[in-house]
């Protein structure tokens, strides 16, 4: 019972501002004649027509597929290369300046280059997403794997574990919280690049939909696209947090007690 109450209070604390905001928007825009700020009621009607669920297969599914494939490639590349470079002092020293340079380029700026190289199809979009999301994951992994607590490393040495065993059983697990921080940034970048890559030469995807709508002066449609993007982005971060909480149970449990 007390648990249930705590839930009710938590939801009320988190939810009152969004509810208030939507109510305000609904009311304030009700009689709007400004074409750029149509009434929320109109946007809502259109939103239902578009996204529950008529246009989802055309514009949402392709975006999400690109996002997930690109992000998955970034995870494999970032954690794989990051583990090797983090474990080898020389390796990191030789590659770090280049990595620092490339990750300093704003990710969206590379999309035109990828278009030149790969054309205008999904391959280009996935490559752009994967490329830009790799760097935060790579850097976080290098950082985490390199700075293993020396007491744990020495303990592992007294067990006479091989370097391989120390890497996979001590250094990588120790780095997991840092790696997750990199994954979070990587996912945000992947989402941005997913949408940005659809601004150019695409008929499908949420980015293309929103841009085409504004170009065709379909302002209500554009608003529904923007709102859906917000909802998707928020949902992604909720899913990510849930995965992180489960994978790093030991880390948060330990922190709570400390």
């Amino acid at each position: 019972m007390r648990r249930a109450w705590r839930w009710v209070i938590a939801i009320a604390v988190a939810g009152w501002l969004p509810v208030f905001f939507i109510a305000w928007w609904w009311h304030a825009s009700a009689n709007s004649k400004n074409p750029y700020f149509p009434p929320l009621s109109k946007i809502w009607t259109e939103f239902k027509a578009n996204w529950i669920f008529t246009l989802v297969p055309v514009h949402v599914v392709p975006s999400l597929i690109n996002l997930f494939v690109g992000f998955a490639i970034a995870i494999v590349l970032g954690i794989g290369a990051g583990t090797l470079l983090g474990a080898s002092r020389t390796g990191a020293r030789y590659t770090e300046p280049l990595i620092d340079f490339i990750r300093s380029i704003p990710p969206v700026a590379l999309v035109p280059i990828f278009i030149l190289l790969l054309g205008l199809d999904a391959k280009m979009r996935i490559a752009s997403i994967a490329f830009s999301a790799t760097f935060p994951i790579l850097l976080a992994t290098i950082e985490g794997v390199r700075h293993t607590n020396p007491v744990l490393l020495e303990t592992a040495q007294t067990f006479r574990l091989t370097n391989q065993q120390i890497l996979w059983r001590v250094r990588v697990p120790y780095a997991k919280p840092t790696i997750f921080a990199g994954l979070q940034v990587g996912l945000q970048i992947a989402f941005v690049v997913t949408i940005a890559s659809e601004y150019l030469g695409s008929g499908f995807g949420l980015g293309a939909f929103t841009l085409n709508a504004t170009d065709s002066f379909l302002i209500v449609d554009a608003w529904t696209g923007v709102i859906l993007l917000g909802v998707l982005g928020y949902a992604l971060s909720l899913v990510f947090d849930a995965v992180e909480r489960v994978s790093l149970r030991w880390y948060y449990g330990q922190k709570k007690l400390a």
Binding site: N149, T158, P173
Partner: peptide, 15 residues
């Protein structure tokens, strides 16, 4: 040979 280091809170793997 087995070794018990001083800092036990940091010599056990928390994960």
């Amino acid at each position: 040979m087995a070794v018990v280091l001083q800092d036990y809170t940091r010599s056990l793997m928390p994960w």
